[in-house]
């Protein structure tokens, strides 16, 4: 156990993230049509190198428990309704984060008839996390900004 903790401390020493546990936020992720790159990086934001959970940030199973809707991908026409349903299932106050260049409407690939486009075409976006895809450290840093008192 001690070895494990020492290993974790060593892994985390080099990441430029704040120390401590300032607050807690529940995140609901919705893939609205991504290439799966953002999902793979978001998954590693919970790996031992970054370990989002230690800051009180966790991905929850239902939008009904969530403070933040974290959306990836250019919104496809087929994911428009499910995305809106998830948003409306969230309690107030709620915030929306757009993860990755596609969610921000940059360099979208695809047929116009299949894409709605950027997340902000549908929902008010509070946090923008650019990158194709943004790496786990960048995702974590951006999400931690939500914990700053505004």
């Amino acid at each position: 156990m001690l070895t494990l903790l020492r290993d974790l401390r060593r892994l985390r020493r080099d990441t430029a993230l704040p120390q401590g546990r300032p607050a807690s936020i529940a995140i609901r992720h919705v893939d609205a049509g991504s290439c799966n790159g953002c999902e793979h990086e978001l998954t590693l934001a919970t790996s031992p190198y970054v370990d989002l959970q230690r800051f009180g940030l966790g991905v929850v199973a239902s939008p009904r428990h969530a403070d933040v809707l974290l959306v990836t991908g250019p919104v496809t026409t087929r994911m428009r309704e499910p995305l809106l349903t998830a948003y409306h299932a969230m309690p107030e106050p709620r915030r929306v984060a757009a993860l990755g260049d596609c969610a921000l409407g940059c360099n979208l690939l695809g047929s116009a008839s299949e894409l709605v486009g950027a997340v902000e075409e549908l929902l008010p976006v509070d946090l923008r996390i650019p990158g194709c895809p943004p790496d786990p450290e960048r995702i974590a840093n951006a999400l931690l900004a939500l914990l700053e008192p505004s």
Partner: peptide, 9 residues
């Protein structure tokens, strides 16, 4: 659900 019509595009 994630069909982006890439081949056609």
């Amino acid at each position: 659900y994630k069909h982006r019509g890439l081949e056609r595009a």
